[in-house]
Design a protein around this nucleic acid. Sequence first.
DNA 1: TAAACTAATTATAATGATTATAAAGAAGTA
DNA 2: TACTTCTTTATAATCATTATAATTAGTTTA
Lengths: 141, 141
Amino acid sequence: MSEVFLKDALVTLKESGVRITPQRHAILEFLISSEQHPTADEIYKALEADFPNMSVATVYNNLRVFRNAGLVKELTYGDSSSRFDFVTHDHYHIICDVCGRIVDFHHPGLEEVEHLASHVTGFKVNSHRLEVYGTCPECAS
Amino acid sequence: MSEVFLKDALVTLKESGVRITPQRHAILEFLISSEQHPTADEIYKALEADFPNMSVATVYNNLRVFRNAGLVKELTYGDSSSRFDFVTHDHYHIICDVCGRIVDFHHPGLEEVEHLASHVTGFKVNSHRLEVYGTCPECAS
DNA sequence: TAAACTAATTATAATGATTATAAAGAAGTA
DNA sequence: TACTTCTTTATAATCATTATAATTAGTTTA
Protein backbone atom coordinates (compact mmCIF):
# COMPACT_ATOMS: atom_id res chain seq x y z
CA MET A 1 0.00 0.00 0.00
CA SER A 2 2.56 2.58 1.11
CA GLU A 3 4.81 1.26 -1.66
CA VAL A 4 2.29 2.58 -4.15
CA PHE A 5 2.25 5.98 -2.50
CA LEU A 6 6.01 6.15 -2.64
CA LYS A 7 6.19 5.14 -6.29
CA ASP A 8 3.51 7.64 -7.24
CA ALA A 9 5.31 10.36 -5.34
CA LEU A 10 8.58 9.61 -7.09
CA VAL A 11 6.85 9.76 -10.47
CA THR A 12 5.25 13.08 -9.54
CA LEU A 13 8.60 14.50 -8.57
CA LYS A 14 10.36 13.27 -11.70
CA GLU A 15 7.63 14.73 -13.88
CA SER A 16 8.15 18.14 -12.34
CA GLY A 17 11.89 17.90 -12.94
CA VAL A 18 12.97 17.20 -9.38
CA ARG A 19 15.92 14.88 -8.94
CA ILE A 20 15.51 11.81 -6.79
CA THR A 21 18.31 11.77 -4.27
CA PRO A 22 18.81 9.19 -1.55
CA GLN A 23 17.91 11.82 1.04
CA ARG A 24 14.66 12.69 -0.72
CA HIS A 25 13.81 9.05 -1.07
CA ALA A 26 14.40 8.46 2.62
CA ILE A 27 12.43 11.50 3.79
CA LEU A 28 9.47 10.53 1.64
CA GLU A 29 9.62 6.94 2.78
CA PHE A 30 9.71 8.01 6.40
CA LEU A 31 6.82 10.43 5.95
CA ILE A 32 4.66 7.81 4.27
CA SER A 33 5.36 5.08 6.77
CA SER A 34 4.98 7.40 9.74
CA GLU A 35 1.57 7.73 11.29
CA GLN A 36 2.86 10.42 13.60
CA HIS A 37 2.89 13.62 11.52
CA PRO A 38 6.53 14.33 12.38
CA THR A 39 8.31 17.65 12.75
CA ALA A 40 11.34 18.49 10.60
CA ASP A 41 13.59 17.73 13.53
CA GLU A 42 11.98 14.36 14.15
CA ILE A 43 12.60 13.45 10.52
CA TYR A 44 16.17 14.62 10.82
CA LYS A 45 16.77 12.53 13.94
CA ALA A 46 15.05 9.49 12.49
CA LEU A 47 17.33 9.47 9.46
CA GLU A 48 20.48 10.30 11.36
CA ALA A 49 21.52 6.65 11.52
CA ASP A 50 21.27 6.16 7.76
CA PHE A 51 22.56 9.62 6.81
CA PRO A 52 25.06 10.70 9.44
CA ASN A 53 26.13 13.70 7.39
CA MET A 54 22.73 14.97 6.40
CA SER A 55 22.05 18.61 7.23
CA VAL A 56 18.86 19.91 8.84
CA ALA A 57 18.65 22.32 5.95
CA THR A 58 18.26 19.38 3.60
CA VAL A 59 15.21 18.25 5.51
CA TYR A 60 13.66 21.71 5.38
CA ASN A 61 14.57 22.24 1.74
CA ASN A 62 13.02 18.98 0.68
CA LEU A 63 9.92 19.37 2.77
CA ARG A 64 9.41 22.61 0.89
CA VAL A 65 10.02 20.86 -2.44
CA PHE A 66 7.46 18.21 -1.52
CA ARG A 67 4.98 20.81 -0.36
CA ASN A 68 5.31 22.74 -3.61
CA ALA A 69 4.76 19.51 -5.51
CA GLY A 70 1.58 18.95 -3.51
CA LEU A 71 2.90 15.78 -1.93
CA VAL A 72 3.09 17.04 1.63
CA LYS A 73 1.00 19.32 3.80
CA GLU A 74 2.42 21.53 6.50
CA LEU A 75 0.38 21.62 9.69
CA THR A 76 0.81 24.59 12.01
CA TYR A 77 -0.66 24.57 15.46
CA GLY A 78 0.05 26.73 18.44
CA ASP A 79 3.26 24.96 19.34
CA SER A 80 6.65 26.00 18.10
CA SER A 81 7.29 23.69 15.18
CA SER A 82 5.37 22.66 12.10
CA ARG A 83 4.34 19.10 11.45
CA PHE A 84 4.32 17.44 8.05
CA ASP A 85 1.73 15.12 6.65
CA PHE A 86 2.02 13.06 3.51
CA VAL A 87 -1.05 13.73 1.39
CA THR A 88 -2.94 10.58 0.49
CA HIS A 89 -6.62 11.32 0.10
CA ASP A 90 -8.64 14.02 1.80
CA HIS A 91 -8.89 13.57 5.50
CA TYR A 92 -9.21 15.72 8.58
CA HIS A 93 -7.31 15.70 11.86
CA ILE A 94 -8.40 15.35 15.44
CA ILE A 95 -5.82 16.49 17.97
CA CYS A 96 -5.50 15.54 21.62
CA ASP A 97 -5.30 18.56 23.91
CA VAL A 98 -3.41 16.54 26.49
CA CYS A 99 -0.72 14.60 24.63
CA GLY A 100 -0.81 16.32 21.25
CA ARG A 101 -1.41 13.16 19.28
CA ILE A 102 -2.88 13.72 15.82
CA VAL A 103 -5.29 11.13 14.46
CA ASP A 104 -6.82 11.09 10.98
CA PHE A 105 -10.51 10.77 10.33
CA HIS A 106 -12.62 10.95 7.23
CA HIS A 107 -15.67 13.07 6.58
CA PRO A 108 -17.43 14.14 3.42
CA GLY A 109 -16.12 17.51 2.26
CA LEU A 110 -17.77 20.64 3.55
CA GLU A 111 -18.80 22.18 0.26
CA GLU A 112 -21.82 23.86 1.78
CA VAL A 113 -19.62 25.76 4.18
CA GLU A 114 -17.39 26.84 1.32
CA HIS A 115 -20.41 28.02 -0.62
CA LEU A 116 -21.78 30.03 2.25
CA ALA A 117 -18.42 31.59 2.98
CA SER A 118 -18.03 32.51 -0.67
CA HIS A 119 -21.50 33.97 -0.83
CA VAL A 120 -21.12 36.06 2.32
CA THR A 121 -17.63 37.40 1.73
CA GLY A 122 -17.36 37.53 -2.05
CA PHE A 123 -14.19 35.42 -1.97
CA LYS A 124 -13.41 32.91 -4.68
CA VAL A 125 -12.91 29.82 -2.51
CA ASN A 126 -10.04 27.40 -3.11
CA SER A 127 -9.92 25.14 -0.09
CA HIS A 128 -10.58 24.86 3.61
CA ARG A 129 -9.00 23.53 6.75
CA LEU A 130 -10.81 21.78 9.55
CA GLU A 131 -9.47 20.37 12.78
CA VAL A 132 -11.20 18.91 15.77
CA TYR A 133 -9.75 19.11 19.27
CA GLY A 134 -10.41 16.88 22.24
CA THR A 135 -9.00 14.24 24.55
CA CYS A 136 -7.84 10.90 23.19
CA PRO A 137 -9.03 7.65 24.81
CA GLU A 138 -5.64 6.99 26.42
CA CYS A 139 -5.44 10.42 28.08
CA ALA A 140 -9.09 10.27 29.12
CA SER A 141 -8.53 7.18 31.25
CA MET B 1 -20.74 48.34 20.69
CA SER B 2 -17.03 47.74 21.15
CA GLU B 3 -17.29 49.67 24.43
CA VAL B 4 -19.43 46.85 25.75
CA PHE B 5 -16.88 44.27 24.71
CA LEU B 6 -14.14 46.19 26.47
CA LYS B 7 -16.12 46.58 29.67
CA ASP B 8 -17.06 42.93 29.71
CA ALA B 9 -13.46 41.95 29.13
CA LEU B 10 -12.25 44.11 32.00
CA VAL B 11 -14.84 42.56 34.29
CA THR B 12 -13.78 39.08 33.22
CA LEU B 13 -10.18 39.88 33.96
CA LYS B 14 -10.92 41.41 37.36
CA GLU B 15 -12.99 38.39 38.31
CA SER B 16 -10.08 36.10 37.62
CA GLY B 17 -7.78 38.26 39.71
CA VAL B 18 -5.91 39.95 36.89
CA ARG B 19 -4.85 43.54 37.47
CA ILE B 20 -5.93 46.17 35.01
CA THR B 21 -2.90 48.12 33.91
CA PRO B 22 -2.84 50.89 31.33
CA GLN B 23 -0.93 48.59 28.97
CA ARG B 24 -3.51 45.83 29.26
CA HIS B 25 -6.29 48.31 28.74
CA ALA B 26 -4.63 49.64 25.61
CA ILE B 27 -3.86 46.22 24.14
CA LEU B 28 -7.43 45.07 24.66
CA GLU B 29 -8.83 48.27 23.21
CA PHE B 30 -6.64 47.93 20.15
CA LEU B 31 -7.55 44.28 19.65
CA ILE B 32 -11.26 45.01 19.88
CA SER B 33 -11.21 48.00 17.57
CA SER B 34 -8.94 46.27 15.08
CA GLU B 35 -10.55 44.32 12.29
CA GLN B 36 -7.15 43.15 11.12
CA HIS B 37 -6.23 40.26 13.43
CA PRO B 38 -2.87 41.80 14.29
CA THR B 39 0.41 40.12 15.17
CA ALA B 40 2.12 40.79 18.49
CA ASP B 41 4.56 43.06 16.73
CA GLU B 42 1.80 45.05 15.04
CA ILE B 43 0.20 45.63 18.42
CA TYR B 44 3.54 46.68 19.84
CA LYS B 45 4.13 49.16 17.02
CA ALA B 46 0.60 50.51 17.17
CA LEU B 47 0.95 51.36 20.86
CA GLU B 48 4.47 52.69 20.62
CA ALA B 49 3.25 56.27 20.42
CA ASP B 50 1.21 56.03 23.61
CA PHE B 51 3.64 53.76 25.48
CA PRO B 52 7.16 54.60 24.34
CA ASN B 53 8.71 52.44 27.04
CA MET B 54 6.55 49.40 26.65
CA SER B 55 8.42 46.14 26.13
CA VAL B 56 7.56 43.53 23.49
CA ALA B 57 7.51 41.03 26.33
CA THR B 58 4.58 42.91 27.84
CA VAL B 59 2.59 42.41 24.67
CA TYR B 60 3.36 38.71 24.60
CA ASN B 61 2.73 38.26 28.31
CA ASN B 62 -0.62 39.94 28.14
CA LEU B 63 -1.74 38.19 25.01
CA ARG B 64 -1.12 34.99 26.92
CA VAL B 65 -3.05 36.29 29.90
CA PHE B 66 -5.97 37.19 27.65
CA ARG B 67 -5.80 33.86 25.91
CA ASN B 68 -5.88 32.00 29.21
CA ALA B 69 -8.87 34.08 30.24
CA GLY B 70 -10.62 33.07 27.03
CA LEU B 71 -10.76 36.63 25.74
CA VAL B 72 -8.42 36.20 22.82
CA LYS B 73 -7.72 33.47 20.31
CA GLU B 74 -4.33 32.81 18.79
CA LEU B 75 -4.38 32.05 15.07
CA THR B 76 -1.46 30.15 13.59
CA TYR B 77 -1.05 29.84 9.88
CA GLY B 78 1.90 28.86 7.78
CA ASP B 79 3.62 32.22 8.12
CA SER B 80 6.10 33.04 10.81
CA SER B 81 4.07 34.89 13.40
CA SER B 82 0.80 34.27 15.19
CA ARG B 83 -2.19 36.55 14.85
CA PHE B 84 -4.57 37.43 17.65
CA ASP B 85 -8.31 37.74 17.50
CA PHE B 86 -10.57 39.14 20.16
CA VAL B 87 -13.31 36.60 20.84
CA THR B 88 -16.79 38.02 20.44
CA HIS B 89 -19.16 35.30 19.34
CA ASP B 90 -18.35 32.22 17.35
CA HIS B 91 -17.24 32.96 13.86
CA TYR B 92 -14.96 31.45 11.27
CA HIS B 93 -12.27 32.97 9.10
CA ILE B 94 -11.75 33.12 5.38
CA ILE B 95 -8.21 33.97 4.33
CA CYS B 96 -7.00 35.42 1.05
CA ASP B 97 -4.23 33.37 -0.52
CA VAL B 98 -2.93 36.44 -2.33
CA CYS B 99 -2.87 39.29 0.18
CA GLY B 100 -3.35 37.35 3.42
CA ARG B 101 -6.39 39.35 4.51
CA ILE B 102 -8.55 37.59 7.10
CA VAL B 103 -12.29 38.17 6.97
CA ASP B 104 -14.86 36.89 9.45
CA PHE B 105 -17.96 34.99 8.48
CA HIS B 106 -20.65 33.25 10.43
CA HIS B 107 -21.92 29.72 10.04
CA PRO B 108 -23.89 27.44 12.30
CA GLY B 109 -21.56 25.25 14.35
CA LEU B 110 -20.45 21.95 12.92
CA GLU B 111 -21.69 19.67 15.67
CA GLU B 112 -22.31 16.80 13.29
CA VAL B 113 -18.68 16.81 12.28
CA GLU B 114 -17.63 16.79 15.91
CA HIS B 115 -19.95 13.87 16.58
CA LEU B 116 -18.62 11.85 13.68
CA ALA B 117 -15.03 12.55 14.63
CA SER B 118 -15.72 11.53 18.20
CA HIS B 119 -17.48 8.36 17.10
CA VAL B 120 -14.73 7.30 14.71
CA THR B 121 -11.71 8.08 16.88
CA GLY B 122 -13.00 7.61 20.41
CA PHE B 123 -11.89 11.11 21.36
CA LYS B 124 -13.87 13.26 23.79
CA VAL B 125 -14.34 16.35 21.62
CA ASN B 126 -13.87 19.85 23.01
CA SER B 127 -13.80 22.17 20.03
CA HIS B 128 -12.89 22.52 16.40
CA ARG B 129 -11.21 24.91 14.06
CA LEU B 130 -12.31 25.72 10.54
CA GLU B 131 -10.81 28.06 8.01
CA VAL B 132 -11.63 28.68 4.39
CA TYR B 133 -9.02 29.81 1.88
CA GLY B 134 -9.53 31.66 -1.38
CA THR B 135 -9.04 34.92 -3.23
CA CYS B 136 -10.65 38.12 -2.00
CA PRO B 137 -12.66 40.33 -4.38
CA GLU B 138 -9.92 42.97 -4.52
CA CYS B 139 -7.19 40.51 -5.45
CA ALA B 140 -9.45 38.72 -7.92
CA SER B 141 -9.88 41.84 -10.03
C1' DT C 1 -4.26 57.43 53.52
C1' DA C 2 0.10 54.87 53.86
C1' DA C 3 2.76 50.74 54.41
C1' DA C 4 3.17 46.25 52.68
C1' DC C 5 2.46 42.65 49.65
C1' DT C 6 2.35 40.93 45.28
C1' DA C 7 1.89 41.13 40.44
C1' DA C 8 3.31 43.56 36.21
C1' DT C 9 6.58 45.94 33.43
C1' DT C 10 10.92 46.75 31.53
C1' DA C 11 15.34 45.76 29.50
C1' DT C 12 17.95 42.40 28.02
C1' DA C 13 19.60 37.92 27.08
C1' DA C 14 18.53 33.30 25.60
C1' DT C 15 16.19 29.88 22.96
C1' DG C 16 14.86 27.52 19.10
C1' DA C 17 12.77 26.94 14.53
C1' DT C 18 13.59 28.21 10.08
C1' DT C 19 16.11 30.37 6.22
C1' DA C 20 20.20 32.20 3.65
C1' DT C 21 24.80 31.58 1.84
C1' DA C 22 28.71 29.72 -0.21
C1' DA C 23 31.51 25.88 -1.22
C1' DA C 24 31.71 21.01 -2.37
C1' DG C 25 29.54 17.05 -4.37
C1' DA C 26 26.57 14.41 -7.42
C1' DA C 27 23.08 13.74 -11.30
C1' DG C 28 21.97 14.28 -15.93
C1' DT C 29 23.49 15.42 -20.63
C1' DA C 30 26.11 16.32 -24.82
C1' DT D 1 34.66 12.45 -20.45
C1' DA D 2 33.65 17.14 -19.63
C1' DC D 3 30.03 20.36 -18.66
C1' DT D 4 26.08 22.27 -16.66
C1' DT D 5 22.92 22.46 -13.19
C1' DC D 6 20.79 20.98 -9.11
C1' DT D 7 21.52 19.28 -4.41
C1' DT D 8 23.77 18.79 -0.20
C1' DT D 9 26.47 20.26 3.47
C1' DA D 10 28.19 23.25 7.02
C1' DT D 11 27.57 27.27 9.02
C1' DA D 12 25.89 31.71 9.98
C1' DA D 13 21.95 34.73 10.17
C1' DT D 14 17.20 35.87 11.13
C1' DC D 15 13.26 36.38 13.64
C1' DA D 16 9.45 35.20 16.78
C1' DT D 17 8.90 34.02 21.26
C1' DT D 18 10.25 33.10 26.10
C1' DA D 19 13.10 33.50 30.38
C1' DT D 20 15.36 36.33 33.86
C1' DA D 21 16.22 39.75 37.15
C1' DA D 22 15.59 44.25 38.68
C1' DT D 23 12.38 47.99 39.01
C1' DT D 24 7.80 49.82 39.17
C1' DA D 25 3.02 50.06 40.16
C1' DG D 26 -1.80 47.97 41.59
C1' DT D 27 -4.25 46.41 45.36
C1' DT D 28 -5.18 45.40 50.15
C1' DT D 29 -5.54 46.27 54.75
C1' DA D 30 -4.50 48.39 58.95
